[in-house]
Amino acid sequence: MEQVAFRQMKEGTREEYVFLERLEDQFNQGLVDRLLQALRHLEHGLSGYRVSRLEHSLQSAARAEADGADEDMIIGALLHDLGDELAPYNHSQLAAAIIRPYVRGEVTWVVHHHGLFQTFYYAHHFGGDPNERDRYRDHPWYQSCVDFCERYDQAAFDPAYPMPPLEHFEPMLRRVFSRPPFDPAVIGEEHPLEP
């Protein structure tokens, strides 16, 4: 079989769905390669900063690594802005959706909310509330997100900061994304990801 015969999903046979599942498994083997390609593409994204979006991502991950963060948080830092080009107004949520099947719930929650928490540094320049993040003050991962933004994200626009090349993080990406998706032993506790 090279392609299914059905025109509506409800018409599909078991054989067709087994065939499609096999193709999907093969395709998913290239996920890390596609993530690396998407990260490289950030080199030519949004301008105006002193570093490219790729350099910002590398620097965020390097800062997390230097801080002793675990691989889940380092990968979260590396991929946290991956949604900038396709979802400029909800990039945090897109990045969180990408990592969610492979990292612990805390990292997904932090990446999901970092866009809102990051407004602490600039919302006042536009008449916004820099403390809007405080609506999550009682959340168990509030401080993790505050720390992520302070240590790894908002500080990662320094062209003089030593950062490794993307290849440095590739083995870590491959380890994290080789985990079984949605493994409860990895994901652990999850919390709702409201905006």
Score class of each variant (00 low, 15 high):
V4L: 02
A5H: 03
F6L: 02
K10E: 09
T13M: 08
R14I: 08
Y17F: 15
R22C: 06
R22Y: 07
F27W: 13
L31G: 08
D33A: 13
R34C: 05
Q37L: 15
L39E: 04
H41V: 09
E43T: 14
H56D: 13
S60R: 02
A61I: 07
I74R: 08
G76N: 04
L79Y: 05
L86Y: 09
A87T: 13
P88R: 11
P88H: 08
N90S: 14
N90W: 14
S92L: 05
S92D: 12
Q93Y: 10
A96I: 11
I98N: 07
I99N: 03
P101H: 00
P101A: 02
Y102K: 04
R104H: 07
G105D: 04
E106T: 02
V107M: 03
W109L: 02
W109N: 11
V110M: 10
V110N: 03
V111P: 14
H112P: 00
H112G: 06
H113L: 04
H114L: 05
H114I: 01
Y121D: 05
H124M: 12
G127M: 05
G128R: 06
N131T: 07
E132V: 12
R133Q: 11
D138A: 12
H139G: 04
P140G: 02
P140L: 06
Q143T: 05
S144A: 13
D147A: 09
D147T: 01
D147W: 04
D147Y: 01
E150P: 00
Y152T: 00
D153T: 00
D153K: 04
Q154D: 05
A155L: 07
P162L: 11
P162D: 10
P165A: 13
R179L: 11
P180M: 10
D183C: 08
D183M: 02
E190P: 00
E190K: 06
L193M: 03
L193P: 10
E194N: 13
